[in-house]
Computed example of a mutant assay.
Amino acid sequence: MPAAWILLAVATVVSLGLGSVHISPGEILTILSGAGEPGPSDTIVWDVRLPRVLLALLVGSAIAVSGVLLQTVMGNPLADPGLTGVTSGAAALVLVILLAAPTYHSMIPVAAFVGGVVAATIVYALAWRREGIKPLNIILAGVAVNALAGAFIAFLSLRYSERLPAAIQWMNGSLAAKSMSSVWMILPYIVIGLVVSMLCVRSANVMRLGDEVARNLGEGVNLTRILLSLVAVFLAAIAVSAVGIIGFVGLVVPHIARMIVGSNHAVLIPMSIAVGALLVLISDTVGRTAFSPTEIPAGIIMAAIGAPYFLYLMRRQGAR
């Protein structure tokens, strides 16, 4: 596991140095330590690149852990905040504020959480059967919720078309033009969510064994499912509130982390934090450098990576 964190640290330094103005890793370390004389590179690092790098790290870790918890709770390896409608539900209410009530900008994290909870509740209600939640029903319910939220987003886009340009980057999962204020807005929420997720390790490990075994071990299955789901929705919604929809992170990262450290949540969650942060950081860095001067939002890069992987997982699940 230390190797993952070392790789993340290296990727962070490299990302800070890449762009229209190249800055060497040594100079980056000097700037971050404050040891050198202030210059133009300091402004580029501190005011332009560092905020979006920190956002990538925070958002990636939050969505990844959200995916881990949702897959555990739903017993479905295909579950993630995007496919289950959580992110689209959160995005729909955030757009209400961005387009219809911009004066309430400070309420965006709360609106995102409420939208995510509503979407998750609908998915659970549609997927639940007397024998429990069926994995296929979750995907179908998620498709329905995504379609409903998408229709609402389309209505808002038409109704407030004059304000839409300001929200387009956000809708595509872009980290461009972000300042430290965006980082400070979500930092306490994500730290709280990640800490709570680590406190839920035992419950998550028990739920992984199935409802019947969990009950025999004295776990309150329904209450635990609700609590873990709320933590997952909270993390995904806060990430959406900051940068919009970045899909497939919550799907891909848990599988990668399990291949590295196994299914014990005591190590799976920290590994998912590192891998999720790394994946979103790489996506954002590629998006802003590979096609310069055009910048591709991280959400689009992740969709290009995650969609084929999702089809692979669907095929593998269907073959079983």
Rank of each mutant, 00 (worst) to 15 (best):
R129P: 09
I108A: 07
G244R: 02
V286K: 02
G250C: 06
F310P: 04
N205P: 05
L268M: 03
I226A: 10
I186K: 14
A204I: 03
R52S: 09
P165Y: 04
T84K: 03
A92R: 04
P254D: 05
H105N: 06
I63A: 05
A147E: 00
L235D: 06
V13S: 04
T294I: 13
P135C: 12
P25W: 13
V118T: 01
V59K: 11
P270Q: 09
G85C: 11
L148Y: 01
I273R: 06
T84S: 15
V45A: 12
I44Q: 10
A3S: 15
R159L: 14
L140I: 04
G287T: 01
S174I: 12
A214C: 09
L140K: 12
I273A: 14
A176P: 06
I256Q: 01
S161L: 08
I63V: 12
G218V: 05
V191C: 10
L69P: 07
I31L: 13
G220S: 15
V14G: 07
P254T: 00
F248A: 10
A125T: 12
V145M: 13
V183F: 15
A232H: 15
V286A: 15
A141S: 12
D47M: 10
L99C: 02
G19L: 08
D284G: 11
A274F: 06
I192D: 01
T43S: 10
N222A: 14
I305N: 02
D80E: 15
A62L: 13
L140G: 02
I192C: 14
G115V: 06
R163P: 03
I190E: 02
E27C: 05
G36V: 09
K178M: 15
G116E: 03
L57G: 04
V253S: 01
D47Y: 04
F291T: 03
V48T: 02
P293K: 11
S197Q: 07
T103F: 11
V68R: 07
A232W: 13
L281Q: 05
L58K: 10
V253H: 00
S283G: 06
R130E: 12
R52M: 15
A56L: 09
Q169L: 14
R225W: 08
V201H: 01
V206S: 10
V96M: 15
L98K: 01
A298Y: 06
L32I: 05
A111D: 05
R130Q: 14
V13F: 06
A35T: 13
V213L: 15
A237Q: 07
P135K: 09
L29Q: 08
P109Y: 09
D42Q: 03
A56Q: 06
G250M: 00
A204K: 05
S41V: 03
A239L: 08
Y312S: 04
V252S: 08
R208D: 05
P102Y: 04
I139D: 00
V195N: 14
G262Q: 10
R163Q: 12
A307R: 01
A79N: 00
R52I: 09
I133F: 01
K134G: 07
V65Y: 11
I282V: 07
A100Y: 00
I31G: 11
Y189A: 05
G299K: 07
L98V: 08
D47T: 11
I273W: 03
V253P: 06
A167L: 05
D284C: 13
I23T: 11
S181C: 06
R215P: 11
A304Y: 07
I6Q: 10
L58F: 11
Y309H: 01
A111K: 11
T72Q: 08
V53S: 02
L164W: 02
A119V: 07
